[in-house]
Design a protein around this nucleic acid. Structure first.
Lengths: 109, 109
DNA sequence: TTCATTAGTTACTTTAATGTTACTACTTTT
DNA sequence: AAAAGTAGTAACATTAAAGTAACTAATGAA
């Protein structure tokens, strides 16, 4: 039924979605993009995310090389996250998304 | 570049994710952005999406005012989708995502 | 006559994503 | 001595997302 010739041999959008396709990832990345940030601060800035999901998503972002995790050996623990060089290349996407959200929010209540 | 913190009271990223946050939506939108396209053509260009999900996502995109559905009263049926004016304002995001996917694909195998 | 075509829908099942609660370790503060 | 603070994790429960198979209508073609 589907013709092979018409299949997109490789889709950049699919690739991108593989990295930032989660419900929370762009939101998390946008927060980290502002500057190094601690785990607890993220849970405050993104009130609707649970610690479990946040932790999980951060790990995926780290595994994908988009963020760097800095763990200071202190008690109580302190961990900071920052964008990696690769993560910083996402800034145009994050900014475009941020701007769009602003515009839509101001026009459609 | 503007800092995300300047727009913190409501979260524009969350708003944007509400519109294009699905697994398939950016991919579908990117396809429609290329030009008016029929339902069946979309199922060919996005081989891994089922008709059910495609139909469902298209309806959501239409309800959100991002795309316009043109139904020609023919048998067998013909339906074409195009970006609305609002949908066209997503182009910077879609374009940035597409470019990022291309770059990452070329650098990381 | 029977098949192929198109853009879906319906009913059902499975998988992925997300949430909840309780818990840890170590130090400092009350 | 108890409590507060941090960055998580484990076990379990739930919800959201996605997949599958079968079906429709009207027409033209084999």
């Amino acid at each position: 039924m589907k013709k092979f010739e018409e299949h997109a041999p490789y889709c950049p959008m699919v690739k991108t979605m593989g990295y930032i396709g989660g419900k929370w990832k762009p939101i998390i990345l946008a927060r980290i993009a502002v500057g190094n940030i601690r785990f607890g601060k993220l849970t405050i800035q993104i009130p609707d995310i649970s610690r479990k999901i946040l932790s999980q998503q951060l790990k995926e972002l780290e595994d994908d090389g988009l963020i760097i995790r800095h763990s200071f050996n202190e008690k109580p623990p302190r961990v900071e996250y920052e964008l990696s060089d690769l993560g910083k290349t996402l800034m145009p996407i994050l900014h475009a998304m941020n701007e769009w959200g602003e515009k839509v929010a101001s026009r459609l209540p």
